Every structure is written in C-alpha cells, then in structure tokens.
Simulated scan of single mutants.
Amino acid sequence: MYAMAAMKQYQSVNIQAQVSDATPHRLIQMLMEGGLTRLAQARGAMERGDIALKGTLIGKTVGIVNGLRQGLDLSAGGEVATNLDRLYVYMNTRLTEANVRNDISILDEVSNLLREVKSGWDGIAQ
C-alpha cells in the first residue's frame, strides 16, 4: 500500500515539474496525451463493468476536452479554431452518450478523433 502511495506522489511531482517547464505547445500535447490515457482507462473500466470509475474517467476526459477548447483563440485562429471548437463540442456530446449508453464504440470514436487532432498538433513545428 505504501508503494502505491509513493508512486502516486512521484507521478504527481513529475507531472508538476513537466508542466512548470512546458511550452504552451507542449501543454496542449500533454492535455491530449492525458485525454487519450483517460479514454483508454475508461474503456477498461467499461469492459470490467466498473461503472463508478468509468464515469469518473469520462468526466476527467470531458474536463480535458474543455481545457483544449478554452485554449482556442477563436478571434485569431480563424476557420481552424472554429472547426476545432465544433469538434471539441462534438467530442463532449459523444462522451456523454458513451457514459449513458455504456458504449465502447463511442469511446473508440472519440479516441480516434483526439488521436488525429494530436497527430496534426504534433506535426506543428514549435
């Protein structure tokens, strides 16, 4: 039990250090990575029938997608920012549906969408 608590503490400190040193570009990458991780964990929880954990993880993913959405500059980002905003709204709508319907295929759909956006973001030179 102590080892698990120590590991969680280490991970927390490690993430805090990464965030404090990260560029804005890297912060967005970290959010996307976190979203993909939570989606995979939610999928596992759904497969195991762990309803409470599934809901918590989907909720965290919704929060991450909202964070990505808040980071958009709609006035300067033009059509790309507008399209991303709409995509993020769609993702959150689908996440809510996945939670209510207990539908793994919807989680996979959102994961694929987020992975595609991340791929484009990763391709942007800093």
Rank of each mutant, 00 (worst) to 15 (best):
Y90F: 08
N102T: 00
G77Q: 10
G67T: 03
T96S: 09
G55N: 10
Q70T: 10
D85M: 06
G77F: 09
G78S: 12
Q70S: 14
G78P: 10
L72I: 12
Y90M: 10
R94V: 04
G78W: 08
R101E: 07
N99C: 09
T96W: 08
L57Q: 11
L68G: 02
R69V: 00
Y88R: 12
T93I: 06
N83T: 05
G67N: 06
E79P: 11
L72G: 12
R101D: 09
G63V: 05
L87M: 15
G63R: 10
V62N: 03
L72P: 09
K60N: 05
Y88Q: 08
Y90S: 03
Q70Y: 06
E79G: 12
N92W: 07
D103K: 04
N66P: 00
N92G: 07
I58Q: 01
D103E: 13
V89I: 15
I64H: 01
N66K: 09
M91Y: 07
L72Y: 15
K54Y: 09
A76Q: 15
G77M: 12
N83E: 02
T93A: 06
G78H: 13
R94S: 05
D85H: 13
A98C: 08
Y90K: 07
S75A: 14
T82G: 11
D85T: 04
G78Q: 11
R94T: 04
N66H: 11
G59Y: 13
L74R: 14
V62I: 14
N83Y: 06
N102F: 00
K54T: 09
R101V: 03
I64P: 00
L72S: 14
R86P: 00
V62M: 05
G77E: 07
N99W: 02
G77S: 12
N83I: 03
E97F: 03
D103A: 09
D103F: 06
R86E: 04
V80W: 12
I64F: 01
V62R: 02
V100N: 15
A76W: 07
L74K: 10
E79R: 15
A81H: 15
I64Q: 00
Q70L: 03
L57N: 05
G71S: 05
R86L: 05
N83S: 07
L87Y: 08
V89Y: 10
T93G: 08
Q70K: 14
K54G: 06
Y88M: 14
G67F: 02
K54N: 06
N66L: 10
L57V: 12
Y88H: 12
V89G: 11
A98M: 06
K54Q: 14
V80I: 15
E79I: 15
R86G: 11
D103H: 06
N66D: 12
L68R: 02
Q70A: 13
L95I: 08
A76F: 07
G78D: 08
T82E: 13
V65R: 02
L95N: 05
T96N: 09
D103P: 05
V80T: 14
E97Y: 07
R69F: 00
G55H: 07
L95S: 04
N83V: 04
T56C: 00
E79V: 15
L68C: 04
N83L: 08
G63C: 10
N102G: 10
Q70F: 04
G71F: 03
L57K: 08
A76Y: 04
K54H: 12
V62D: 02
G63S: 14
D85Y: 11
E79Y: 15
V89A: 15
L74I: 03
V100A: 15
G59E: 12
